[in-house]
């Protein structure tokens, strides 16, 4: 499955990380946008979005609150958690709340691309069968 033009929203308060990652995804044909906190993320997700790559620990609204809101209001949007923080409890909670993958930083970009690919496949299946 080609990732060209896939609309990815990257949400992380670590600006340098998220902006560099956006540039690298863009070089690979994806269409990334960036949000630096939960509020920005919820505003950004009102625009067409296929996948959200979401950090958990952020100042103000944390990743779980964003995940809950996205799954309530935009259930088709797939959410991948990418965090520097998180034990087994948080991973389990993220899956229960509807995240499609849980990744820990630092991550190889090919692994992230693979996760985005799988997320898009799930979204496609969901569109076809429901």
């Amino acid at each position: 499955m080609s990732l060209k033009g896939i609309k990815v929203l990257l949400v992380d308060d670590e600006r340098r990380f998220v902006e560099t990652l956006a540039e690298r995804l863009s070089m690979r044909g994806l269409a990334p946008r960036v949000a630096h906190d939960g509020q920005q993320a919820l505003k950004a997700v009102t625009m067409p979005t296929d996948v959200i790559v979401l950090d958990l620990r952020m100042p103000g609204m944390d990743g779980f609150e964003v995940l809950r809101s996205v799954k309530q209001n935009n259930p088709k949007v797939q959410v991948i958690i990418l965090t520097g923080h998180g034990g087994d409890g948080e991973e389990e909670m993220a899956y229960r709340m509807g995240a499609c993958d849980f990744l820990k930083k630092p991550i190889d970009i090919d692994d992230l691309l693979q996760s985005i690919r799988l997320a898009c496949t799930q979204q496609f299946k969901s569109d076809v069968f429901h």
Binding site: E14, F17, T20, H85, K105, P106, I107
Partner: peptide
């Protein structure tokens, strides 16, 4: 320790992406 490990993971993530961008 949890706070420091979280910070370290973020530092490694920035290093990885910056080095990756340099490679790209």
């Amino acid at each position: 320790l949890a706070s420091a490990v979280h910070d370290m993971r973020n530092i490694l993530a920035v290093i990885r992406e910056s080095a990756g961008l340099a490679q790209d």
